[in-house]
């Protein structure tokens, strides 16, 4: 706003308050309207309804022998499904979680009765690379991008990643089928 209108407004005989109220109300309403108008332009970037609907994947795990793992696609990302050996499970359970960067027990990361099965989103929590299996200093996973080491329960042990590998929502439909998502 420049000084130009003021010379004119001074000659206006009307009360200042009423005029100011009118200008403020108009400007405020314009601002509110603009804010509402912007929202569809932003919200359209969020996942569309069909993308949100594609949220679950069913996996047959009967063919995975102990010590083997498979990679399945879920929401465009790899999910590791690993049938852990007894040694791996024992190692995972033996860890003192008070020393971990992201403290979680092995039980919190598996389903009761299916402790040998580890289901995790195979995306490094550092910057999104896919870690390599059966690698790293803790016998779990190792991310080649920036050197994050995960243990046999997929917990971060060393390197830059801040969190454990994410365990998605999943359930056992039967002993050899799981539903992810």
């Amino acid at each position: 706003m420049s000084s130009n209108p003021s010379t004119v407004e001074q000659s206006d005989e009307n009360g200042t308050t009423r005029r100011d109220f009118l200008y403020i109300a108009t400007t405020a309403m314009g601002a509110v309207g603009a804010a509402y108008a912007v929202w569809p332009f932003i919200h359209q970037m969020n996942p569309s309804k069909d993308t949100l609907a594609l949220a679950s994947a069913e996996v047959d795990i009967s063919a995975i022998a102990p010590g083997q793992s498979i990679k399945v696609m879920w929401r465009g990302k790899p999910v590791f499904v690993r049938n852990r050996t007894e040694k791996e499970v024992a190692e995972a359970k033996a860890v003192d979680i008070s020393n971990l960067r992201d403290p979680q027990t092995d039980a919190e990361r598996t389903k009761p009765g299916h402790e040998q099965w580890l289901v995790m989103v195979g995306v490094c929590t550092h910057l999104g690379c896919i870690p390599l299996g059966e690698a790293g200093e803790f016998g779990g996973w190792f991310c080649p991008c920036h050197g994050s080491h995960y243990d046999t329960a997929g917990r971060i042990r060393k390197g830059p990643a801040p969190l454990n590998l994410e365990v998605p929502d999943y359930q056992f439909i039967s002993d050899d089928r799981i539903l992810i998502g």
């Binding site: 569809p40 332009f41 359209q44 970037m45 969020n46 569309s48 309804k49 993308t51």
Partner: peptide
């Protein structure tokens, strides 16, 4: 243009996708 596909097979479908599934796609 973020949701549209300029292909013979995909153009009509992508427009309907915008109309049905993209948030406020019909409005835009």
């Amino acid at each position: 243009a973020m949701h549209y596909t300029p292909t013979v097979a995909g153009a009509f479908n992508s427009v309907e996708h915008i109309m049905r599934d993209v948030n406020y796609g019909w409005l835009l």
